[in-house]
Design a protein around this nucleic acid. Structure first.
Ligand SMILES: [Mn+2]
Ligand SMILES: [Mn+2]
Ligand SMILES: [Zn+2]
Ligand SMILES: [Zn+2]
Lengths: 149, 149
DNA sequence: AAGGTAGATGAAAACGATTTTCACATCAAT
DNA sequence: ATTGATGTGAAAATCGTTTTCATCTACCTT
């Protein structure tokens, strides 16, 4: 039983999905820096803008893989576009998202978790998932309309 | 002040969005008969199959209008496809949806409504909406896998 | 019962996000 | 270094949905 821990270290953290490539490190790094929900396209534009050219397909593939590995959350905005957010810990959260400026506020979700579990148990359904998204206009945007990017 | 109530009656019910046309009656009728969540495309196929040819654009337009008028609920399935369901009353509900067969079960959502309202109030956000979707495998589908349409 | 017109329809094209293809590059184990 | 599995990316394909625009129609006014 020889130990075989990794020999290389990546900028932020080692990508734990498949091989460790430069592109995956870049995407993960950008996602972490983003500090909130971002679309694959926005992330791609930003990467290209910074000179770190990564293919759009690779951005999509990496984000999808991260989400499947539990390292990213996904929500859908009103247009059906998927927004990704880095999830540092293993904890599952819900956010209140400003539809004007994109600000996302983690909210206390205990009650809704308990409710979802109770409904799941009493229904007889198996493998019950839930999607809970709150959205509105944040105080800042409410005060100064039409200031968004 | 002369009263001007409608002079015609439609098969199921008068469509209360804009003009009353044959196509809208057909779409609404099909949506009601569907008895659950259906996609615009499925509804269109069914209408064409029954000989009642209605344009796909019209199906989309009608369903969107119904939803905006509060006469239909919309959920997004995992692929991002929109599913519509007729809403008879003015009450707002949430459903537990079987991802295998499409069965939808209305669930008791009092706690989640209260929670959403409390979060909205304490956040300072304006015009807060919520999307709450539960999905899983219904007992029947759990028992006999791969029986779906 | 016309006539006029804002509103509705539908076939086809446009859209836009995401996925797939496939030839080529590169990671990592030997 | 060799090598085979894996990842990459430009371009094309998908696919649900929206838009366009020429044509039609519901329905209000004469
Ligand atoms: Mn939750
Ligand atoms: Mn609700
Ligand atoms: Zn805001
Ligand atoms: Zn089922």
């Amino acid at each position: 039983m020889v130990s075989n821990r990794p020999r290389t270290t990546a900028p932020h953290d080692v990508v734990l999905i498949g091989r460790s490539t430069q592109q995956r490190a870049l995407v993960l790094g950008a996602l972490i820096v983003a500090e909130g929900f971002v679309s694959a396209q926005a992330l791609h534009k930003q990467l290209v803008g910074t000179g770190s050219s990564v293919g759009l397909s690779t951005v999509y593939r990496t984000l999808t893989a991260l989400a499947e590995a539990g390292r990213a959350d996904i929500v859908r905005d009103t247009n059906g576009e998927r927004l990704f957010r880095h999830r540092p810990g293993p904890d599952h959260r819900h956010y209140l998202l400003c539809t004007e400026c994109g600000l996302s506020l983690p909210v206390e979700s205990g009650p809704v978790e308990k409710w979802a579990e109770r409904v799941a148990r009493s229904s007889g359904f198996a493998n019950v998932r839930h999607v809970v998204e709150l959205s509105g206009i944040c105080p800042d945007c409410e005060r100064q309309p039409g200031q968004a990017t």
